[in-house]
């Protein structure tokens, strides 16, 4: 019982990180109609930017967090303008191939600058806090939960209350109609990259806080990110949040029955089942 609760608690933390990453992935998928295979590596980039500001430049964590999100968004826009904007005219699968290339470029750029070894934001070891029923969490994990909830609420308000957020949902619904309606689609696409990059950078930083930084940290999460996106329904940011939590908790719970090394396989199996049973996802529209 204690083990079960502990696993669920760990799963929620992992789920938070996956959810943050997949909100942007899902929106980009819905609007640009392609799976961004560089999303995981954008996550890594965010984490390393925060490392740059916090550890290498000695800034406070909160400042490093914000600056890293901003810088990741900047990189995302640059990449979009140089690469994806021109590729948008062709088939969406070409965009996908392009994003695979970007993924490799980003990951190896990180390795070039920061080396292949692991990095930490903080060298100290945190004493776990005992919650009820024998469940232990590290203070950092509570921080992760709080930051995630705050960011999700902000993302929600952005999507519901701002013109740009509504336009994103509109474009995810129907790109052609958005164009004839007079929505400046290129501008909205830029903002979508900003939102996606900011959230995925945050996910990367939180993952780095929870464990450590490595050049492949985001790439290793790509499968769970896609699984959460498809589970929630492509283009549905709310579905992605739910999907993230489901994937996170299932991955942790799976260790009760299979060796932990096969955790990534669980995300994959859930995704495959979803695609077979209900390809539109839990909260997706019928296509």
């Amino acid at each position: 019982m204690v083990l079960l609760l502990q696993l669920i608690s760990n799963g929620i933390i992992l789920g938070c990180i996956i959810a943050l990453g997949s909100i942007g992935l899902s929106l980009l998928y819905g609007i640009l109609k392609f799976g961004n295979f560089a999303h995981g590596d954008m996550m890594t980039l965010g984490a390393y930017f925060a490392f740059l500001f916090k550890v290498q430049l000695g800034m406070p964590m909160w400042a490093a967090f914000v600056l890293a999100m901003a810088l990741t968004a900047f990189v995302a826009i640059i990449v979009d303008q140089i690469i994806y904007k021109s590729l948008r005219k062709s088939d969406s699968i070409i965009l996908l191939i392009g994003s695979v290339g970007i993924a490799l470029i980003l990951r190896n750029f990180i390795q070039l600058i920061w080396g292949p070894q692991n990095h930490f934001y903080d060298k100290g070891i945190q004493m776990p806090i005992k919650l009820g029923l024998g469940v232990r969490v590290k203070p950092n994990q509570i921080l992760i939960l709080v930051v995630t909830v705050a960011l999700v609420i902000l993302a929600h308000l952005f999507l519901r209350k701002t013109k740009m957020g509504k336009a994103m949902r509109a474009m995810s619904d129907n790109m052609d109609l958005a164009k004839v309606t007079g929505i400046n689609t290129e501008q909205v696409i830029k903002w979508t990259w900003v939102l996606g990059a900011v959230l995925t950078a945050a996910a990367g930083i939180l993952l780095g806080i929870d464990t450590h930084l490595s050049p492949s940290m985001g790439w290793n999460l790509l499968l769970p990110l896609f699984a959460a996106t498809i589970l929630g329904g492509i283009g549905s940011p709310y579905g992605a949040m739910l999907g993230g939590l489901v994937i996170g908790v299932s991955q942790e719970l799976s260790t009760l029955i299979i060796p932990p090394t096969y955790k990534p396989g669980v995300a994959f199996l859930i995704m495959l089942l979803m695609l077979l049973i209900k390809p539109t996802g839990l909260m997706g529209r019928s296509v």
Binding site: K163, K166, A167, R169, A170, S172, D173, N174, L177, A178, T181, G182, I183, N184, R285
Partner: peptide, 17 residues
């Protein structure tokens, strides 16, 4: 129409510019 947007939001999109 944009199906996942409310009626009012649909109108707002018309006034995007």
């Amino acid at each position: 129409v944009f199906p996942s947007l409310t009626v009012h939001e649909n109108l707002e999109m018309g006034a995007f510019i």
